[in-house]
């Protein structure tokens, strides 16, 4: 559809006019996003570039369009079981716990965490930070309002994580999602209850360029299904950044099909689905 020089010019325009750097994103999935943007706006690359140069709002919109924002409530229950039974018990005696959701999208992962912490009686001791490059998804996250239809698919995961214990099949708790959400099937609304809003701090942050967004060390960093859009070089930079930002023995949680490869892997100890910071 276009030449690779076109893509480079497009990336350069976003860097020069927006300070966004997509040069180390995964080549093929990034190209696919650009193709989609071209189709949606019915513009070719030179037209896209000239609009990016002259129209700041359009440039910001294109950046948001590049991002892929798929997310789910309690996505991949086995990861949440690892958080519940492997990470959180270790932090039980800590007075203050810092958790960062890097690339939080519309916040479903953040509310999953808030619900889990509340069920474990740990929520009041936690500071929850959540960031994303895309300001639209952050607005949704802050409001906590979703479509009922899109959420109902994942309620099974809610039950799996909160009610079942894979390490003890006899244990079975009853937690109903009405405790955390108000919903209206006809209006297709699924809303986080007031008391669970305003707990997390949501903020715009660019993993490529920005330093640690909050002046703390984290006990847990979740960065799931974000680094898959980055190439090895950029992934390695982030594994190093996260290592610096993690507290002693802090944990990094990646997506279920992600792993640390390359020079930074020696800085972490892999425990099942979780990477723990190694301290030398």
């Amino acid at each position: 559809m276009f030449e690779s020089a076109d893509i480079l010019n497009f990336i350069k325009a976003l860097r020069d006019y927006g300070r966004y750097d997509f040069s180390n994103y995964s080549e093929k999935s990034f190209t696919r996003r650009v193709e989609k943007i071209m189709m949606d706006y019915k513009l070719d690359i030179p037209q896209l570039i000239s609009k990016i140069k002259t129209d700041r709002n359009f440039m910001e919109q294109v950046v948001r369009d590049i991002t892929v924002n798929t997310t789910e409530l309690f996505r991949d229950p086995q990861v949440w079981h690892a958080i519940k039974y492997r990470i959180l018990p270790r932090l039980a005696s800590k007075r203050e716990i810092n958790i960062w959701h890097a690339g939080c999208s519309t916040g479903l992962e953040v509310y999953s965490m808030i619900i889990l912490l509340n069920e474990m009686g740990m929520l009041h001791r936690c500071h929850i930070y959540a960031t994303d490059l895309n300001t639209d998804v952050l607005k949704t996250a802050q409001k906590g309002v979703y479509s009922y239809r899109s959420i109902s698919e994942y309620l099974e995961n809610f039950n799996k994580v909160l009610c079942e214990n894979p390490y003890n099949f006899d244990e079975h708790l009853v937690v109903t999602y009405e405790k955390y959400f108000e919903f209206n099937k006809i209006k297709d609304i699924f809303k986080v209850k007031e008391e669970f809003l305003n707990i997390a701090t949501f903020q715009k942050h660019d993993l490529v360029n920005d330093p640690n967004p909050f002046d703390v060390s984290y006990d847990i960093i979740l960065c799931r299904n974000v680094l898959i859009y980055f190439n090895n070089t950029l992934q390695n930079k982030l594994f190093l950044d996260f290592w610096k930002y993690l507290d002693t023995y802090g944990s990094l949680v990646l997506g279920i099909h992600e792993s640390i490869i390359g020079p930074t892997s020696a800085k972490y100890e892999k425990r099942g689905l979780i990477y723990n910071k190694k301290v030398f």
Binding site: S26, E27, K28, S29, R32, V68, I228, H257, E258
Partner: peptide, 21 residues
């Protein structure tokens, strides 16, 4: 290709996954 991910193969025989629509 893993469930729920699109599977791309970049240069150098390297996989890239994605959760696009």
């Amino acid at each position: 290709a893993p469930a729920n991910y699109h599977m791309y193969i970049d240069a150098n025989n390297q996989f890239s996954l994605s959760t696009e629509e």
